[in-house]
Amino acid sequence: MSGTPIATTRSAAGMPTGKLAVWWLIGSEIVIFGGVLASYIMHRLAHGGWSEEAAHTNTWIGALNTMVLLTSSLSAVLAHQAAEKGDGKKASKLLWATIVGAVTFMIVKAFEWTEEITHGYTIASSTFWSFYYTAAGIHASHVLAGAICMYYVAKSAAKGEHLHRVENVGLYWHFVDVVWIFLFPLLYIAK
């Protein structure tokens, strides 16, 4: 029953409405991750003993996943570039590459967690492991959500529709990448 309202097409702030909303969304996500990471950091700084538990995390797998996310960010930004040039087909393909990155990330994560859980490091083992699984879990749910959004954007971009959405979903994806850039040293490197 409703077409796009005129309200959506206005741009008094000088930025397309969709992109504006994504930036506000990113702001709200900063405080969600900020809450859990701030809680984690203050605990970590107060507990010298946590470094012994953190020693059981696998830096190499963490680095591999960082690599995967950085690369998927590259394909997302290349998709944005293609969409700007009006090449919906290419943008769609590059978005699919990003989705493959997201899926790879999740698969690596699945193997990593299985390994850790079978060695007895579960979410209830200690507060360090609780934070480890909670922070990475919230992040992983964002990876999943981003992949689902990209699936729909890639589908419409292939038909040359809603090309501006390629940038918007890309912005979100880069944000998810940035969160992982901080999670990686916090959970894996700091030992």
Binding site: A13, G14, M15, W23, W24, I26, G27, S28, I30, V31, G34, G35, A38, I41, M42, S73, L74, A76, V77, G170, L171, H174, F175, D177, V178, I181
Partner: peptide, 30 residues
């Protein structure tokens, strides 16, 4: 990533204000 992939510095200034404000509030929480 924020500068080159998200083009935040090329956007309107208020975008940076949103992000920086949220970060500052998190430091406050901390």
């Amino acid at each position: 990533v924020v500068k080159n992939f998200m083009h935040m510095t090329a956007e309107k200034a208020f975008v940076s204000y949103i992000v920086v404000t949220c970060l500052v509030f998190m430091f406050l929480l901390y």
